[in-house]
Write a protein that binds this DNA or RNA. Structure first.
Length: 399
DNA sequence: AGGTATTCACATGAAACTATTCTCTGAGTTAGG
DNA sequence: TAACTCAGAGAATAGTTTCATGTGAATACCTGT
């Protein structure tokens, strides 16, 4: 019999973590270093709302992991706390990227209605009726202001069109007792280019950009969190510096840095080390990348998997870049073998574009003159993952 | 030789279609008074 | 007569297909030397 007792009993002694939650993505810390200026700015814009005055709409830009969401939520919490007795305002936060929750106009409204205490069916209702219901619910609430924070709003607009934002701003003229203040958060700095001039003017009255953290700031952030998350003596300054350097290279993404640190900790722990060293950082970096790719491959729909398998096969055979046409014919063959209906070339073209977005392949549109125009495709899956990837696909496709 | 026009093999865009899930409405049915 | 059932119309959504238009540069075709 395996000595499970030993393993289970010693788990408490061996762990390097004091409080792992602190390193997890959804943890929001007490204080947010290096964002005082931005937080103050947000607060000063929204402050009049405490007196029941409608403030400007606010738009916030910045790359992922620059503390946008955290800062906004911090201010939002403060506002809610202060307005507790006066009931002058209400703040709701909504992430527009959550698949199946808030990624369409209908669902965003449905979600808001739910938060306001109402309910709407998941489907079956015309959208304007949902608007109606939302307005009615707002009208009867006792607050005078409704601060609506839409996170990853660029995603929503990309999917729904900017009309939806326009509609939201227009609601204010329909509402008597209550006004909506919009706070949009976007990862895409070019978000403004995507929306109509008309909408733009009625919308983004105030703007704020979150710059990326530099390596030094990242270091401080990491250090602070690491102190709370790990037992003492587990992480050295060198490790933190390296971790910060890793992340700083990727546009100063603090979330990624924290992830890295956590995974490195887990790896060290599993290897029964008493501290994290540089070696673990590298392994963690590897593992994160690896997991991400394999996870994508595994969860992709069947048609996507067939296409990907076709690509891998072809690359295996030729060892060079391949082209759309080759892929499509190989894909068609594979479809027969796997007993799946083949999609049109048009669709496969889109699938390839999506793979490119996901970073599974590198595609480049090239022209070969009389031989036409097509995508030149290379695999972006690292060599050492290929075997595993193939296995997953074979399994998924019963080959 | 140098300049234009063609042409290929897709890329890219827009609209329309399909299947699924769900609501709402009103006609027909049923059971109780 | 009120309550109930159930089919049909209409919506939202995701994933496609259909139709239409765009496009970069190698090559064919001129042109005038």
């Amino acid at each position: 019999m395996a000595d499970l007792d030993k393993i289970f009993n010693s788990v408490g002694d061996r762990t390097l973590f004091k409080n792992k939650i602190i390193l997890q993505a959804n943890y929001s810390p007490e204080n947010i270093p290096h964002r005082d200026q931005q937080i103050e700015h947000i607060a000063s814009i929204l402050a009049p709302s405490l007196l029941g005055q409608k403030t400007s709409n606010l738009f916030i830009y910045g790359k992922t992991g620059t503390g946008k969401t955290l800062s906004v939520q911090h201010v939002a919490n403060e506002l809610t706390r202060r307005a507790k007795e006066t009931k002058v305002l209400r703040v709701e936060y909504l992430n527009c990227k959550l698949k199946k929750v808030a990624d369409t106009e209908y669902r965003i409204l449905a979600e808001l209605i739910k938060k306001l205490g109402g309910s709407v069916p998941a489907t079956g209702l015309p959208t304007d009726q949902v608007y109606r219901r939302f307005v009615d619910l707002l009208e009867v609430s006792e607050e005078k202001l409704f601060i609506l924070i839409l996170d990853e709003i660029d995603q929503a607009v990309k999917k729904i069109s900017d009309e939806f934002l326009y509609n939201l701003t227009r609601l204010n003229s329909e509402l008597g007792n209550i006004q909506i203040i919009l706070v949009g958060i976007s990862n895409d700095l070019r978000f403004l280019d995507m929306i109509d001039q008309r909408v733009r003017s009625s919308l983004s009255e105030e703007e704020l950009v979150f710059p990326p953290y530099n390596a030094l700031q990242l270091q401080e952030i990491l250090k602070e969190r690491a102190d709370q998350a790990f037992k003492s003596e587990v992480v050295s300054d060198g490790v933190i510096a390296k971790c910060a350097a890793f992340a700083a290279r990727e546009h100063g993404d603090a979330r990624r840095a924290l992830d890295l640190l956590r995974v490195a900790g887990e790896i060290a722990e599993r290897g029964s080390h008493s501290s994290i060293d540089i070696k673990h950082m590298d392994m963690a970096n590897d593992k994160i990348e690896r997991d991400k790719i394999l996870e994508i491959i595994e969860t992709e729909p069947k048609q996507f998997q067939v296409v990907l398998y076709a690509i891998i096969q072809l690359i295996d055979e030729t060892k060079e870049a391949i082209f759309t046409g080759d892929i499509y014919s190989r894909y068609s063959e594979l479809c027969k073998k796997v007993h799946v209906d083949a999609l049109t070339q048009r669709r496969v073209s889109d699938i390839l574009a999506e793979f490119d977005m996901l970073g599974l392949i590198n595609a480049r549109v090239i022209s070969k003159g009389r031989q036409g125009r097509m995508r030149e495709i290379r695999l972006a899956i690292p060599e050492n993952l290929l075997a595993r990837a193939k296995e997953i696909l074979k399994n998924a496709l019963d080959l």
